[in-house]
């Protein structure tokens, strides 16, 4: 078989394959739930109800989407320039770490000064953490996939060490948990009485900012050029390594904001289970959004909906919760294939 580009894809060609991919994901998930003894026809309904069925559920989904928007943006920025940052998990924890180091009393400032300081600190921490793999890549030619992946393990052990040592909360009853951040460091709620904090607003703002940078600035143009063809970009006079380093700084900073927002907006302290893999899930969010920063908002809501909905569905129908991860993996693989098929047709030799 062979792939042949389609010059002018019809509307059906553009929408058909992605729609089929979504449908197939739902069918597969229903069959898997049936294997676990649930009624397959109730699965989709239960997921939707669990994710958006009540005000509480919808707010939960928005809260879950917030860190995913940040990590999704981090991945989208990096992958656009073909810089394979698989270390968003570590960068997220770097942001969370700075937030608790500076936010638990080291800076006794009012909110209007403390919150922006924590934000900047988190961004810098994430950026610096990704700077190391970026320099190893540009200076020594070390593949960033491996280094960023290994950094996740190293940095989580580092956090574990701090939580059992200098950062351990004396009031934590022996749990490896940091002290709570000051109330001045907490992100306020968007609407009084509703459990949704300004981290969500910040995430939307970041998505718009990344979109503006990507489509309206020289740096955005250079990042795209480097991603499309590194040799050609270098030939055109674009400083490829500098662009890659700038990309890494931006990507690391965005991922770190997820950690900042989870601590300052939601949890209040740092634990080793702050992130159930938000850094890795960001890859799915970014890919489903075709690396478009505004699309990331939509796909983060979709992915968060699957997590929250599948969690509640699992409890209601007695299905193992790993079904959510299986659905996301299936959706990812089918969607990348579907998107290819919107632009190419398969021809027999």
């Amino acid at each position: 078989m062979r792939l042949e580009p389609i010059a002018n894809p019809s509307l059906g060609r553009s929408l058909g394959p992605p729609a089929l991919a979504v449908a197939a994901t739902v069918v597969i998930a229903s069959l898997l739930a049936m294997v676990a003894g649930a009624n397959p026809f109730s699965v989709l309904g239960l997921i939707l109800k669990g994710a958006f069925g009540s005000q509480f559920a919808a707010l939960e989904t928005l809260n879950r989407a917030t860190p995913l928007i940040f990590t999704g943006l981090a991945i989208a920025v990096a992958f656009k320039a073909k810089f394979w940052n698989i270390g968003a998990e570590a960068q997220l924890y770097a942001g969370a770490l700075i937030t608790v180091v500076l936010g638990t009393g080291a800076l006794p400032w009012p909110s209007f000064a403390l919150i922006p300081t924590l934000m900047v600190g988190a961004v810098l921490a994430g950026a610096v953490l990704l700077l190391i793999p970026a320099i190893l890549k540009t200076r020594f030619g070390v593949d960033e996939v491996v280094t960023t992946l290994l950094f996740n393990f190293i940095f989580l052990l580092f956090i574990s060490m701090l939580l059992e040592g200098p950062l351990k909360d004396p009031m934590g009853m022996g749990w490896p948990k940091s002290a709570r951040v000051l109330s001045e460091a907490r992100l306020p709620r968007i609407v009084d009485g509703l459990r949704l904090h300004w981290g969500f607003g910040l995430a939307i703002l970041c998505a718009v900012a990344v979109w503006v940078i990507q489509t309206r600035s020289t740096l955005g143009y250079e990042m795209r050029a480097v991603g499309l063809n590194r040799e050609a970009a270098a030939f055109a006079g674009i400083p490829v390594n500098t662009v890659l380093v700038k990309t890494a700084l931006m990507s690391g900073g965005l991922a770190a904001l997820a950690g900042f927002s989870e601590v300052a907006g939601l949890k209040g302290s740092l634990t080793l289970d702050l992130s159930p893999g938000f850094g890795y899930t960001g890859i799915i969010v970014a890919m489903l959004a075709l690396l478009n920063p505004l699309g990331v908002i939509v796909t983060a809501l979709f992915v968060a909906g699957i997590f929250v909905g599948a969690d509640s569905m699992s409890r209601a129908a007695g299905v193992p919760t790993y079904l959510a991860d299986m659905m996301l993996a299936t959706a990812l693989l089918l969607m990348v294939l579907a998107i290819l098929l919107t632009r190419f047709r398969v021809v027999r030799d």
């Binding site: 890859i283 799915i284 299986m326 693989l333 290819l340």
Partner: peptide, 22 residues
């Protein structure tokens, strides 16, 4: 299909891990 080896590989890791746990 020539899809991104990074994305497919990570997708396969997620699928294999989650289906194993399931």
């Amino acid at each position: 299909f020539g899809l991104s080896q990074h994305v497919v590989g990570l997708g396969v890791t997620l699928l294999a891990t989650s289906s194993t746990y399931y």
